[in-house]
Design a protein around this nucleic acid. Structure first.
Lengths: 247, 247
DNA sequence: CGCCAGATTGATACACATCAATTCTCGTGG
DNA sequence: CCACGAGAATTGATGTGTATCAATCTGGCG
């Protein structure tokens, strides 16, 4: 087991060359008071704090999955690509969200920085030790995983059976809800990811995403504001478009 | 906490009317020696043994998710439906596989019996108690979940970005591998589920599944045998069709 | 000001869905 | 043992939602 006594007991040995260690073992931001992440919070001192520039790779699909991560600031994308360039995005972890270590041996997806990001990283063993010490920590880790599994399974229905307009509406609503959870205005969505990322998350093309969003605008369901902001003008309408899958 | 001292300490109070309690707290079949399920095995005595006839519902999407299940025999489907009848299947748990309790509060998917099935059921609290007693049990539960999450994430790429022939080829190979894990002939696939279930798992229609499988047959990649059996004649060919996603 | 990546818009193509018959399979009863 | 029926699977003809290809537009930045 690693040294736990010092305030800054983090290792740098395994940090990939393209990463930069930004901070000492400071406590993670408490911006999202998600109870599910508490276990991780308590391990704040054992975390390595890393930052990645826009579009840098945090880890590759196929790499040994020995670490667990938490986003401090910025947005990450979890993605996977075929040789001929088709890409699927599984999710966009944001501040407070956990990701990584999603398989026994190797990562199933890559993780990349959508924006400049700051993340905390723990070795798998650190988490395992914490669970061994504190049974309650095990429950909380299980909760986190159950939530991620539920999210992935909802995503299956979207990709397998929903039409383009339902997919886009569902995406907009999920973004709005994320805003609400973070105490922001739920009526004004900051997308935070480009059209290509949205398309690859929804299993569509950029053209279809663009057309669908403009169709929503023309119907008066949303309007476009400064920057990448989308304003929800008719939430019930948007929910109807999402087909009752607004979660 | 429930009584643990008796050999047959299972409750019947919450068994839905359409289920039948078949057996006493007998040890589960050790047919699949998957280490990941060991935790559950050790709890065999606390399990309720249930059986369901073909197409009966084990639990509904939206029901409180208080139970965890293990398949003893038969095949289960995890599925979700829109009001207008579109259906997505997330997976087909078979002997030895765990399912259920996949969200904090409520089930995200329904579970139904594809064939006649026998399953073991534990209350969530039983699992939580086991984890509290035995830290190693927590790791094993986490492993199970990580595996399920990885499976779901692979399924995302299939549904979001793969063509019909790639989907079908991937499905056939995954069935073959399951056979191999269970000690059966990996060259002879017993589908065990009807075309509609395959279609809803792959995000296609029955017609497309049928056409694609026959196209494989005409190319000499597979051949059809008695019953629902499919014989793999050209495994490298099938793997090429799957597009390197044969897992 | 001019560059360039990202976004939009339009015209066309195509993979798969949909609709519509058959044909197969297998359990059941005469 | 065979006829029957019903659900499942196959096969064919046609439709359509979204991809693809191809410009054009926009906005941030050196």
């Amino acid at each position: 087991m690693q040294a736990l006594s010092t305030n800054t007991g983090f290792d740098t040995a395994r940090v990939p060359a393209f990463t930069t260690i930004v901070a000492r073992g400071a406590a993670p931001r408490a911006d999202t008071g998600q109870n599910a992440a508490r276990t991780i919070d308590e391990l704040g001192r054992e975390a390595t704090r890393l930052s990645f520039g826009r579009n840098r790779v945090i880890y590759f699909e196929g790499d040994p999955a020995d670490y667990y991560y938490r986003v401090v600031s910025g947005t990450v994308r979890l993605c996977k690509e075929t040789e001929d360039g088709r890409r699927q995005i599984a999710g966009f972890p944001g501040p407070g969200d956990l990701f990584g270590w999603a398989g026994s041996r190797h990562n199933v997806y890559s993780a990349e920085a959508v924006t400049d990001v700051v993340i905390l990283r723990w070795h798998r063993r650190t988490i395992e030790d914490a669970i061994a010490r504190d049974p309650d920590a095990g429950h909380r880790m299980l909760s986190v995983l159950f939530e991620q599994l539920a999210e992935a399974q909802n995503h299956l229905l979207l990709l397998g059976r929903m039409h383009a307009d339902e997919r886009v509406a569902t995406f907009l609503l999920s973004r709005a809800e994320r805003n609400a959870r973070n105490g922001l205005d739920a009526g004004r969505i900051l997308l935070g990811v480009c059209r290509k990322d949205i398309a690859d998350y929804l299993g569509l093309t950029v053209e279809t995403v663009s057309r669908t969003m403009h169709a929503f605008k023309n119907r008066g369901v949303v309007s476009f504001a400064a920057g990448e902001a989308v304003k929800i003008c008719d939430r019930p309408g948007l929910e109807r478009l999402a087909g009752g899958l607004a979660n």
